[in-house]
């Protein structure tokens, strides 16, 4: 025991020796290369973040000093109907949209991983939508989902289904947006695809020799083997969905933000409205920090729960 402690002490704390001239120069060169990022981070990320934390306890006046109101912005927030509407809408997208995207992209990745003729072609086709800019693809979907002239309802009509009013019915606007998201899931597919290629062939063969069918091999070998990828996609997906903005901003077409009936009033949309349209920058800052905390808690929770479901080989 004592011996062990002795060894520990040898490693920690480390003994600093004087740097050689070369090491010092290397350090400076390294720091110089880091400088652009560091300055960018300090000026454009850390400073605005801290400023918004300060503003969140005040009424922000553009050209006059801040008016301190303590926790009022936070208290008002929890009494604001719009805040709860926006939170509900956002959670709907997180709870339904993210798992659906993961499931769909996982199965697409499995299909794209099959050794078939034209594999590269299919991969390109599935990835293409994700390089279309968000605004352009959203406008495209406005036309696809147009209840009168849109291709989706026309096709549904051929098979005898009377398609819903995707854009003006509050029950269908969010599912419409989720479909839009599914169309652009190329990035998630690519990440899954790389994960699938890491699944050990010997494990799959061993399972096959043991008599496991396709489904059993998928469920008992592939799914656990790609579980770290699932966790990564889940967390990035949840974070992105909590910040959902651009599609909702464009999707309303000529209508007001949140149309129809505030069913597309997402958290970031309400934050934007408060900050830039209603000039309530302090209130919007409080909203931003509440969102930050929600995302932080969700991420930590997911990481905690994931211990049981994630398998890290090696």
């Amino acid at each position: 025991m004592d011996e062990l402690r002795m060894t520990d002490q040898k490693i920690w704390p480390p003994r600093f020796r004087k740097w050689s001239r070369r090491e010092r120069d290397n350090f400076k060169i390294g720091m110089l290369f880091l400088l652009p990022w560091t300055i960018g981070f300090l000026v454009f990320t850390l400073y605005p973040m801290l400023a918004s934390l300060v503003y969140s306890f005040a009424v922000y006046h553009a050209r006059q000093p801040l008016e301190w109101v303590g926790l009022k912005n936070y208290i008002d927030l929890f009494q604001d109907d719009l805040f709860w509407t926006a939170l509900y809408n956002t959670l709907y997208m997180v709870v339904i949209g993210v798992p659906l995207t993961l499931l769909a992209s996982f199965f697409c990745a499995i299909l794209l991983n099959l050794k078939v003729r034209g594999q590269a072609f299919y991969r390109v086709v599935y990835f293409l939508p994700s390089i279309v800019p968000t605004v352009a693809s959203t406008i495209l979907w406005l036309w696809i989902l147009n209840p009168q002239a849109g291709i989706l309802n026309t096709v549904l009509g051929y098979i005898g289904i009377h398609g819903p009013n995707w854009m003006s019915n509050p029950a269908w606007s969010k599912p419409g947006l989720i479909m839009l998201g599914l169309w652009g899931m190329g990035n998630t597919i690519i990440i899954y695809l790389s994960g699938l290629q890491d699944v050990s062939v010997s494990l799959l063969e061993a399972a096959e020799l043991d008599g496991a069918n396709w489904w059993q091999r998928l469920w008992h070998v592939t799914v656990p083997m790609v579980s770290p990828i699932t966790l990564f996609n889940l967390i990035t997906g949840v974070i992105a969905m909590f910040q959902y903005f651009a599609q909702a901003y464009v999707f309303r077409g000529f209508q007001n933000l949140g149309y129809p009936l505030n069913s597309t009033l997402f958290y970031s949309v309400l934050l934007y409205q408060n900050a830039f349209q209603w000039l309530k920058m302090g209130y919007a800052s409080a909203m931003a920090w509440v969102l930050f905390i929600i995302i932080l808690v969700c991420t930590l929770l997911l990481l905690k729960i994931s211990d049981k479901f994630t398998y890290y080989a090696g």
Binding site: P147, Q148, A149, M167, S168, G253
Partner: peptide, 16 residues
């Protein structure tokens, strides 16, 4: 009326 008029606003700048 909602079903009939849905999407009309987006056709503002068109012959539709």
């Amino acid at each position: 009326v909602m079903a009939f008029s849905s999407g009309w606003a987006d056709a503002y700048m068109s012959g539709d």
